Deep mutational scan, measured.
Amino acid sequence: NQESVVAAVLIPINTALTVGMMTTRVVSPTGIPAEDIPRLISMQVNQVVPMGTTLMPDMVKGYAP
């Protein structure tokens, strides 16, 4: 099972992602793959992401799977 990126904290809208904001977990449905965390650093979320929420591609500005 592939791990997906999950919010480790509440991430406010338009916040640039940092390593500490993200964790990984096997979830269903799957979100952004864990191995993409290095690509996500400094990208901004386009909505509020509650802690424990799986990051989906459409939540991150400029992210393309």
Rank of each mutant, 00 (worst) to 15 (best):
N1Y: 03
Q2V: 12
S4Y: 12
S4G: 04
S4A: 04
S4W: 04
V5M: 03
V5H: 00
V5G: 00
V5K: 00
A7I: 02
A7P: 00
A8I: 05
A8T: 13
A8G: 09
A8S: 11
A8K: 09
V9N: 07
V9Q: 12
V9D: 06
L10F: 13
L10D: 10
L10C: 04
L10A: 11
L10V: 12
L10G: 13
I11S: 00
I11R: 00
I11Q: 00
I11F: 01
P12Q: 13
P12F: 04
P12M: 05
P12G: 11
P12A: 15
I13G: 12
I13N: 14
I13F: 10
I13M: 10
N14H: 14
N14F: 10
N14Y: 11
N14G: 14
T15H: 13
T15A: 13
T15W: 05
A16W: 08
A16P: 12
L17H: 00
L17F: 02
L17S: 01
L17D: 01
T18E: 04
T18A: 14
T18W: 04
V19Y: 11
V19M: 07
G20A: 15
G20T: 14
M21N: 09
M21F: 06
M21L: 12
M22G: 01
M22N: 01
M22S: 01
M22K: 01
M22T: 03
M22I: 05
M22P: 01
T23A: 06
T23M: 08
T24H: 11
T24W: 11
T24Y: 09
T24C: 03
R25A: 13
R25V: 11
R25S: 11
R25Y: 07
R25N: 15
R25H: 15
V26S: 12
V27Y: 03
V27L: 06
S28Q: 15
S28I: 09
P29Q: 05
P29H: 05
P29R: 03
P29E: 06
P29V: 12
T30D: 08
T30H: 15
T30E: 15
T30S: 08
G31V: 09
G31C: 03
G31I: 04
I32N: 01
I32V: 06
P33H: 09
P33T: 06
P33M: 09
P33G: 07
E35P: 10
E35M: 04
E35I: 05
E35C: 04
D36Y: 09
D36W: 08
D36K: 12
D36P: 00
I37V: 13
I37R: 15
I37C: 04
I37D: 00
P38C: 06
P38Y: 08
P38K: 12
P38E: 10
P38T: 09
R39S: 10
R39A: 06
R39M: 11
L40G: 00
L40Y: 03
L40H: 00
I41M: 09
I41Q: 14
I41V: 07
I41C: 04
S42W: 14
S42H: 15
S42K: 13
S42F: 05
S42Y: 12
M43F: 11
M43K: 13
M43T: 15
M43C: 03
M43L: 08
M43E: 05
Q44S: 11
Q44H: 14
V45S: 06
V45Q: 00
N46Y: 03
N46S: 11
N46A: 09
Q47S: 14
Q47D: 08
Q47R: 12
Q47V: 12
V48N: 11
V48D: 04
V48M: 11
V49W: 01
V49I: 10
P50K: 04
M51H: 15
M51P: 12
G52P: 01
G52A: 04
G52L: 12
G52T: 11
G52H: 13
T53W: 05
T53F: 08
T54N: 02
T54Q: 06
T54W: 02
T54K: 05
L55N: 01
L55M: 13
M56R: 11
M56K: 10
M56L: 10
M56A: 06
P57Y: 11
P57V: 07
P57A: 09
D58S: 15
M59I: 06
V60R: 00
V60I: 15
V60L: 08
K61T: 06
K61N: 11
K61P: 13
K61G: 08
G62V: 04
G62L: 07
G62Q: 11
G62I: 04
G62H: 11
G62S: 07
Y63S: 04
Y63T: 04
Y63D: 04
P65C: 05
P65F: 02
P65K: 09
P65Q: 09
P65M: 03
